[in-house]
């Protein structure tokens, strides 16, 4: 029964994505304001003006398990950020805690430079694998955050409680910190450590807020529709249980 429900949900998501994607080509959707993402968009421009770096940490997600979703969301944001800040005197630095993710980070950043028409400015050492375990990765990322003239640390991906160490370094260097994790411990740590926290699925909204492309907006609208469907199903199920149908 469960695989059938899962398959049905999958097809529903695909169907909704296609319908919404075709529909929003005609209309520009309006999204609610997320303060952390407004701050992120502003810090992209400020970093270019200040001549300081952005540090994008993509966490230690493995691409072979369910944590890969947050890694892909981080890569999507990285692609936009690298395109928008590639002309800065101090190019952005990206760090990853998984080797395969590190390779994709290099490819994504290079693509961002390519899209901005400055591929020759891309330096492959700006995309780094700083460690292969959560702590070694975090320590390597702390090293970047403290020593490389970073004005904004952007943490998008899978982080556990060790995110606190990186957040602490950002605080001590008076750098802005914007963070989102798919892990509950990481989220609570980032909630306590950042000015404006990103909670839950807001991690996956980053692309849509930084880039106005139809596909990003469609993804976000589909997430909202599915969330409402789940809410209605949960409430309906509870009501049916209450009145004794189940």
């Amino acid at each position: 029964m469960t695989p059938i429900i899962a398959l049905g949900f999958l097809f529903l998501t695909i169907f909704l994505f296609l319908v919404v994607f075709l529909f929003i080509k005609k209309y520009t959707p309006q999204f609610r304001e997320i303060l952390a993402l407004t701050r992120l968009a502003r810090s992209l421009g400020l970093s270019v003006e200040d001549g300081k770096r952005l540090h994008i940490s993509l966490g230690h997600s493995s691409l072979l398990d369910e944590r890969g979703g947050s890694a892909f969301a981080g890569l999507s944001a990285l692609r936009i950020i690298s395109e928008k800040t590639s002309v800065s005197d101090m190019p952005p630095v990206a760090s990853a805690g998984d080797a395969a993710l590190g390779l994709l980070t290099q490819d994504t950043m290079q693509a961002g430079y390519q899209a901005a028409g400055v591929e020759e400015l891309y330096v492959h050492t700006t995309s780094r694998v700083t460690g292969l375990t959560p702590f070694s990765y975090t320590v390597g990322a702390m090293y970047i955050a403290s020593d490389e003239n970073v004005s904004t640390n952007i943490m998008l991906g899978h982080f556990g409680a060790e995110a606190s160490l990186l957040a602490d370094v950002a605080d001590r260097n008076y750098a802005t910190l914007i963070g989102a994790s798919d892990n509950l411990a990481g989220q609570s740590v980032l909630y306590a450590s950042t000015q404006d926290a990103l909670i839950g699925e807001e991690l996956f909204a980053t692309g849509a807020y930084l880039d106005t492309s139809s596909s990003h907006s469609a993804s976000l609208i589909v997430q909202d529709i599915l969330r409402w469907l789940i809410i209605i199903t949960l409430l309906g199920g509870s009501a049916l249980k209450f009145i004794g149908v189940f």
Binding site: T13, G69, S76, L104, D107, E201
Partner: peptide, 25 residues
């Protein structure tokens, strides 16, 4: 609630990669 949101985000992001809308390679 948070995990359901994360799961939906993961699902949609995964489909974007699967259909080649998102190509981080």
């Amino acid at each position: 609630g948070i995990l359901i949101g994360v799961a939906l985000g993961t699902l949609v992001t995964g489909l974007r990669v699967l259909f080649g809308v998102e190509r981080p390679y």
